[in-house]
Design a protein around this nucleic acid. Structure first.
Length: 219
DNA sequence: AACCAGGAGAGAG
DNA sequence: CTCTCTCATGGT
């Protein structure tokens, strides 16, 4: 058993794919919008939705709140689930506004802020961590389906459908949630997604996978 | 033409 | 607590 499997995966992925420059967004608020819109949705469709919002200059909390749901729904339609997501955007925008925006919320400790985000309807664990990490620059690692799948195939976690918090802890026990590690968290999650999109989506064996030497199925 | 995507909420058991 | 269902569009 390796002593630091997560770090090894990071180093390997980084050596293969290089820096990823995530999250693809211009502002913190756009990160949050993307995080909500990409729930169970291909990023390609999210890009269309965000572009539609951008065209109408709706990418701010105040504009989201002052725009009728029907208009928002038309804009974000390509991203699917547009009825609930338009509501989620409004709910989150309302939260941001009432709490004084990013500057004020940034002062809150990571764990406390995470709980606040999780209390908002439409913000689950992955969305909350995405917002914490990429919009607030807080050291909170993001776990997704790719992460669970990859870690299981590498033998780092025991079951493929492992729970969220245990997987998150796996990473954060090895790479402590400190400010200096925010960059690593960002890159690692981005690398896992980019790798997963190419090699882990369909085939469980990852024949041509750059990580095949590390994969438990290859031993 | 089923199947899935950078999930989450609500309800049942 | 752990399933299961629903929400919806666009690309393989």
């Amino acid at each position: 058993m390796k002593e630091k499997p997560v770090v090894e995966v990071f180093q390997k992925l980084f050596s293969v794919y290089g820096e990823q420059h995530w999250w693809p967004a211009k502002t913190p608020f756009e990160v949050c919008v993307g995080a909500i819109l990409t729930q169970n949705t291909a990023w390609k469709n999210v890009e269309k939705a965000i572009e539609n919002l951008q065209k109408r200059n709706l990418l701010s909390p105040s504009k989201i709140l002052s725009t009728p749901s029907e208009i928002l729904e038309i804009c974000i339609k390509p991203a699917g689930f547009y009825v609930q997501k338009s509501l989620y955007l409004k709910t989150f925008s309302s939260f941001l506004t009432k709490r004084g925006g990013f500057e004020q919320l940034k002062k809150i400790e990571t764990g406390a802020l995470r709980r606040e985000l999780l209390s908002i309807k439409g913000i689950g664990r992955e969305t909350a961590d995405s917002i914490l990490l990429y919009a607030f620059d807080k050291p909170s690692f993001v776990v997704d389906a790719y992460t669970k799948r990859l870690f299981f195939r590498l033998g780092i976690s025991k079951r493929e459908k492992e729970k969220y918090e245990p997987v998150k802890s796996l990473v954060e026990m090895e790479i402590p949630p400190r400010t200096e590690n925010v960059k690593v968290y960002k890159e690692l999650h981005a690398l896992i997604v980019e790798h997963g999109k190419n090699y882990c989506r369909k085939s469980p064996l990852c024949q041509e996978c750059p990580l095949k030497m590390m994969c438990s199925y290859d031993r």
